[in-house]
Simulated scan of single mutants.
Amino acid sequence: MGERHSKSEVSEQINDRSSDMDAMNSLEILQLMNDEDHAIMPALKKALPDIAQAVDIIVDRFRIGGRLIYVGAGTSGRLAAIDALECPPTFGTSPEQVSFLLAGGPEAFLAPIEGAEDDEEAAARELLALELTSNDCVVALSASGSTPYCIGALKYAAGLGAATISVSCNQETVMGKLSDLSIEVIVGPELLAGSTRLKAGTAQKIVLNMLSTASMIRTGHVYRNMMVDMQPSNSKLKRRAVQIVREATGAGQEESELALQSADWRIKTAVVSLLANVTPEEAEELLHRSDGFVRLAVRTDMQK
């Protein structure tokens, strides 16, 4: 029964373990779901070398002024949109540095757009509108690895010389063959046959977390394990900013608040200003010379 579909369609296979799921009570269903979710982490661990290589590619593109552009449809596209939209407030990036294309357009985030994922030419048109260049990196996500919208994006990006990465939950996919790098997280058949919003969706969300977070760490947006480029846009985040400065520098509450106010609430600037005992303007110069890395900025000051 497990061989109803080919290896390349594992995300569509019937899961024998859940064949009587409709006769189970609530706890039994949840226990089964929990058991199935245990397949995600081993599959991710196997894919870590490829995910690390993808991070290196993204970092290289960032360093030459390139962008990271996610492309996806349905669940995959919505997850990618969330990851992209969370980068500016978390890491202080511009909305353009990490962006997304969702089949059917932004309105498809709230409601399905019939047939959008089958339009291979639409993604090419949208990447053209974004003025994609060879400096950029396109990451296409699809549980099946065969979504036409994503295929169109990869073909167009490859034609321009942009870096291309595919993320799927199947093996030997069309998208993988079109990409410079293929990340395959094989989580097995879904508990609810073909419902890739379950294990496949969870796996893709974790891959997205890894790609964006590791890339931001590698490009200086984090000091130790703190979000020093976070945008403190409300009172709650301002309190968090003060706490970050206190943790990063050992300064007291009042000193941390004053440093942030002097730095126009730029956390990274306030941290370097306190650690290096310099003015905010001097801290900005140190950060510029160290490509935004707090640790290097402080060392640079010590070496003067």
Results as ranks from 00 to 15, higher is better:
Thr279Leu: 14
Ala259Asn: 13
Leu275Asn: 01
Leu258Thr: 10
Ser273Lys: 00
Glu257Gly: 09
Gln261Ile: 06
Ala251Leu: 08
Gly252Asp: 15
Pro280Trp: 00
Gln253Cys: 10
Ser273Met: 13
Asp264Cys: 04
Leu274Ile: 15
Lys268His: 03
Gln253Pro: 05
Asp264Lys: 13
Leu260Gly: 03
Ala276His: 09
Leu275Arg: 15
Glu254Asn: 06
Gln261Tyr: 01
Glu254Lys: 04
Pro280Phe: 04
Glu254Tyr: 05
Asn277Glu: 15
Leu275Asp: 07
Arg266Phe: 02
Ser273Leu: 07
Ala259His: 06
Lys268Ser: 10
Ala251Trp: 01
Ser273Asp: 02
Ala263Ser: 13
Val271Lys: 07
Gln261Glu: 11
Glu255Ala: 15
Asn277Asp: 13
Trp265Gly: 01
Asn277Pro: 02
Thr279Ile: 11
Trp265Ser: 06
Gly252Pro: 11
Val271Ser: 08
Asn277Phe: 14
Glu257Ala: 06
Pro280Cys: 12
Gly252Ala: 07
Glu257Tyr: 10
Thr279Arg: 13
Ser256Met: 02
Val272Ser: 13
Asn277Val: 14
Asp264Gln: 11
Asp264Tyr: 09
Leu274Gln: 14
Gln261Cys: 03
Asn277Trp: 10
Ala276Gln: 06
Thr279Trp: 12
Leu275Ile: 02
Val272Arg: 09
Asn277His: 15
Val278Arg: 14
Ala259Gly: 06
Lys268Met: 04
Glu257Val: 07
Val272Cys: 12
Ser273Tyr: 00
Ala276Tyr: 09
Val278Thr: 14
Glu255Ile: 10
Gly252Asn: 09
Glu257Trp: 13
Leu258Cys: 10
Thr279Asn: 14
Ala251Phe: 04
Val271Tyr: 02
Leu274Asn: 05
Arg266Gly: 00
Val271Met: 14
Ser273Glu: 02
Gln261Phe: 02
Leu258Ser: 10
Leu260His: 05
